[in-house]
Design a protein around this nucleic acid. Structure first.
Lengths: 209, 209
DNA sequence: ATCAGTTTTAAACAGGTGTTTAAAATCTAC
DNA sequence: GTAGATTTTAAACACCTGTTTAAAACTGAT
């Protein structure tokens, strides 16, 4: 089996950083293999194609993230049968922030990747997401509905997509925004600070009259 | 001067559609000139480079949109010295929707373009925007502050960027979202309907406690 | 009708793209 | 230690990219 593992990992690590920084089509397999210090052909040998590499990069994150969110979701459901909207949205905080322990800048890398893949192919991403993690999504939506029973299903659909837009868009560019905040307001803010400002915003939005 | 005007226009029209649908780097000059039915070299002859064409496509929209927003803004200020947040955000509705009269699907094309250019180069767009339309932005922020005087400048900064994310992200993918809403909820919704659902959401978000 | 200025055209340029090939190197198990 | 499978490698493939060139076509004014 040689050390295929480490070659595959080197490719994934190099690719995710380049994809997050410059986008998918702006990153070439030659850039990836050069940064990973592996042979050009190994992308196709190990992943088949560049597209399958893109998918592998994203799945590596979702594979650990979504189960973690699921744990928080059922934990919340058990501890508190009637959680508030803020509590429901907070189930994302710990799993998303803990990506930073798994990999340096893991949080912002994933969210940048999501932002890019989302704008690139909304429909495709949605199908993939619902296909693979539909039960977690359903669990989450059910909790939102319980916290805000006045909302019709279609209103929940719209408001959660608004929310998704806010989060993905903000987090995808959180590095730049934090830089600006530092420059314009002398504000020393980290990614956790952004999240803590985000939660009240979206909770208020979703529970708007 | 020949009929340079119409060649330039044909290129702009073809390019904006391709850019909105597939992204900037995913669209080649050959695709553009083929769709526009003009010679390949005319992109470089009339615009200098592909990058300058991208800028020209976006500027053609902003040139008419931002002054219109400015008019609404000063109109609101005169009619109502103390407008609510919902009223302030509503100044965007008419100008943005009226892009549809100017060009078919104008609204969603511009917003898709903004979404793409925003994720591609956050800092660059911000500088361009503030450089060219900084006074309108300042006028708008001042009205937000007046409607919500409890917010600190840095809180306004963050919440308006959350809002920008929500709007651009939602509108950039509004076609796909409307399709899903039609399929899942039998909901016959148009772009105006999306906007009317969006305004309360962001107004509530910005005025969150 | 001529001529300068502008625009259009086909062709070529130099370089980058993802992917495939077949040989060489490496690893694993007997 | 050798055989067989797996992995790595350098080279080539076929194609696409944005841009430039220089000649041709067209334009409006004299």
């Amino acid at each position: 089996m040689a050390n295929a593992q480490t070659t595959k990992l080197k490719i994934l690590d190099a690719a995710e950083e380049l994809f997050a920084d410059h986008g998918f089509s702006e990153t070439s397999t030659r850039q990836i293999t050069k940064k990973a210090e592996v042979n050009l052909a190994s992308v196709n040998y190990h992943f088949g194609s560049k597209n399958e590499l893109i998918q592998a990069v994203i799945e590596r994150y979702l594979e650990v993230l979504v189960p973690n969110i699921d744990v928080e979701l059922t934990g919340l459901k058990n501890d508190n049968p009637n959680p508030t909207l803020e509590e429901v949205f907070s189930v994302f905080i710990r799993p998303i922030l803990s990506l930073n322990q798994q990999r340096k800048n893991g949080t912002s890398i994933l969210l940048q990747l999501l932002g890019r893949s989302y704008t690139d192919s909304q429909r495709h991403m949605r199908r993939f997401f619902l296909g693979n993690y539909g039960d977690v999504v359903a669990k989450f939506v059910a909790l939102v509905y319980k916290a805000q029973p006045g909302l019709s299903p279609s209103e929940i659909f719209w408001r959660l997509h608004f929310t998704l837009g806010t989060v993905v868009f903000t987090m995808a560019s959180s590095d730049a925004l934090m830089d600006i905040a530092r420059a314009d307001f002398d504000e020393q803010i980290a990614i956790e600070g952004v999240v803590k400002r985000l939660i009240p915003f979206i909770a208020a939005g979703v529970s708007a009259p």
